[in-house]
């Protein structure tokens, strides 16, 4: 008898009290929790996203689509970034005003190669306002998971018109479980010393979020 059979047989014996006719989806699950907490206009939802991102120490910027290249250029210059890794499907115009050497993400590159890169610029799949979360799903403008992990500075662009949702229950149906996902809520942090939060451990220690299409830029450039 394989261990698989042993464990499954134990499970079945343990569940002798469950009526024979009960199916796997029969035990009721009440789903009367909220799909969204509160009512907001689309502008208020974007504002909440900005507030919650900033609350967890992400640096938030806003701009109109035409201003995006110059804003990204300024953010990279302020950081002193000389090399920037980008996913294969990133709109080349985004970096058109940046005075940096662009490193394409190549499968042959090792983690150590990425460690020598200053910054990474990506888009995202979804942003969740209530939790201040960006979700990356490896789409063409986001790339492999490692490129947003190893460099210490991540600039993530959110198109507010079609990428911002209010809540976690609204985000999941827009994401495919088949794709590897990374949910990011602020820069790397830890609560491991005296249960108090400090930012900056292994992931990018600086996370800059650009909300595109939400009016003019405001807030400090990192």
């Amino acid at each position: 008898m394989s261990s698989r059979d042993v464990v499954l047989a134990r499970v079945r014996r343990a569940l002798a009290d469950v009526p024979r006719g009960e199916g796997p989806y029969d035990p009721p699950v009440p789903r009367d929790y909220r799909r969204v907490h509160g009512t907001r206009t689309p502008e208020e939802t974007v504002e909440l996203l900005a507030v919650n991102l900033a609350d967890y120490r992400a640096l938030v910027h806003r701009c109109a689509p035409a201003e995006l290249p110059s804003l990204i250029g300024r953010l990279l210059a302020a950081r002193g970034a000389r090399t920037v890794v980008v996913p294969p499907g990133l709109d080349p115009r985004w970096l058109s005003a940046a005075d940096v050497s662009v490193v394409p993400d190549r499968a042959a590159d090792t983690a150590r190669d990425l460690d020598a890169v200053d910054s990474v610029v990506t888009g995202c799949a979804v942003a969740v306002a209530e939790t201040g979360t960006l979700v990356l799903d490896g789409g063409p403008d986001q790339g492999r998971r490692r490129i947003t992990l190893v460099p210490d500075h991540h600039v993530c662009v959110v198109r507010v018109a079609d990428q911002v949702v209010d809540s976690v229950p609204q985000a999941l149906p827009r994401l495919s479980p088949r794709r590897p996902l990374t949910w990011i809520s602020g820069p790397s942090a830890t609560s491991d010393i005296e249960l108090d939060r400090v930012e900056g451990v292994h992931g990018p220690r600086t996370l800059e979020v650009v909300l595109v299409g939400a009016g003019a830029e405001h807030g400090g450039a990192g």
């Binding site: 967890y56 939790t131 979360t133 492999r144 490692r146 590897p180 949910w183 990011i184 809520s185 992931g203």
Partner: peptide, 25 residues
């Protein structure tokens, strides 16, 4: 989970994966 454990609206990183993905991970 995040609100109960670290008292955050959301923890900084959540990774989900399904089997293996070509070229990623």
């Amino acid at each position: 989970l995040p609100r109960s454990s670290t008292a955050e609206r959301m923890n900084p990183y959540t990774t989900t994966w399904t089997g293996t993905t070509d070229g990623d991970g």
